[in-house]
Computed example of a mutant assay.
Amino acid sequence: MQEMKAAVVPAVNAPWELRDVPLPSPGPHQVLVRIHACGLCYTDALMAQGVLSYRPFPMVLGHEGVGEVVAVGDGVTARKVGDRVGLPITQKPCGRCEFCRERHPYSFVTANNCANPILTGVNVDGGQAEYVAADEEGTILLPDGIPYEYAAPTVCAGYTVWAALRRAAPKPDARVAILGIGGVGHLGVQFAKAAGYHVTAVTHSPDKHDLARELGADQVVSNGDELKAAGGADVMLHTSPHHETAVDALKGIRPWGKLVLMGISANDTFPLPALAMTSHSFQVIGSAHNSPEYLAEALNIVARGDVKPMIDVFPKEKVDEAYNRLLHGQLRFRGVITY
């Protein structure tokens, strides 16, 4: 039996272990991808800690894997050996449930509404390994020139924030605020600026003010009052897991403005000020990847150099160190493991 190296999470809250595991083979309509890089996401931490539970331990996580197709199974038509691909979280819906009968595009909405989806790095093994076998439709072609290390965080974090901006559909002269300058937010500033909007970064961390300006923010504020004084925002992208900061920042949203939620937190309570929401006709929008064309757009924007993910790169032998740095907020801003 052929083997490969994979980062295995053996039990809840256990250290990640680099182990020898069986090498997968591609089944019908599947491709075998040689992983070159895989990003770390906070969702991985929630699963490793047992906060989110989709299958028993041990497991191999990773829904930001990117690499090269090295073999194809029977019936594959959309991919060929040598293709450079990414592996986003939604690999394949069941195709039979009520939701699937409506023929929605693959997205994280599919992941949460299909009766029996296949989710890379969630309910099947993911990209924290040297190889992954996945349905051909659960891959996306990478544009020429994008480094694997930049493509990996774009497959989830970049996809998340770009899809949220597209879902909000700001007018051409809109003012866009990015709440939280972390693993997702630092990309949000760059994507919003690349799209031509006036960008305000909202962060409580004074040490991130200069960085936010370097990333392209036209101005930086610390809270909702300062945002209002600086001219407000027509669209605010909430990228942080700390929801209380978003409630405060509503003070700075302009009439008919939109608050777009994408931050995931173990604490899912989000209290909204009803009077302000009603009297200013605010909209609150949930955003979860939305549609695969937005991932293709995000990858192309990164490939042409308009957005540059800030990453810490680790060899596979240091995967547990990278995971611990994620847990303790010591990454600036995305961790990427190379295989």
Score class of each variant (00 low, 15 high):
66 V>A: 09
112 N>V: 07
69 V>N: 02
42 Y>I: 00
121 G>C: 08
49 Q>G: 12
67 G>F: 11
120 T>C: 12
169 A>N: 11
106 Y>G: 00
141 L>P: 11
162 W>M: 13
87 L>C: 04
113 N>F: 11
125 D>M: 01
90 T>H: 08
110 T>I: 06
153 P>M: 02
89 I>R: 11
155 V>N: 00
106 Y>W: 05
42 Y>C: 03
71 A>I: 10
183 G>Y: 12
39 G>K: 04
42 Y>P: 04
145 G>V: 13
42 Y>K: 09
149 E>L: 06
78 A>M: 11
141 L>Y: 06
70 V>G: 00
73 G>R: 09
145 G>F: 07
62 G>R: 01
61 L>V: 08
118 I>E: 01
121 G>H: 03
70 V>F: 13
94 C>P: 00
84 R>L: 11
107 S>C: 05
123 N>P: 13
58 P>M: 03
140 I>V: 15
108 F>E: 09
179 L>D: 01
50 G>I: 03
53 S>I: 04
47 M>T: 14
59 M>L: 15
97 C>Q: 00
144 D>M: 07
92 K>T: 13
66 V>L: 09
61 L>F: 14
70 V>Y: 13
84 R>H: 14
51 V>P: 05
176 V>R: 04
60 V>F: 07
79 R>S: 03
102 E>P: 00
51 V>T: 13
146 I>T: 05
164 A>F: 14
129 A>L: 06
116 N>F: 07
51 V>E: 14
123 N>A: 02
61 L>Q: 12
60 V>I: 15
184 V>D: 00
184 V>A: 04
81 V>M: 01
110 T>S: 05
166 R>I: 05
118 I>Q: 00
78 A>T: 15
120 T>F: 02
148 Y>N: 00
137 E>W: 09
66 V>P: 09
156 C>D: 08
82 G>H: 11
151 A>I: 12
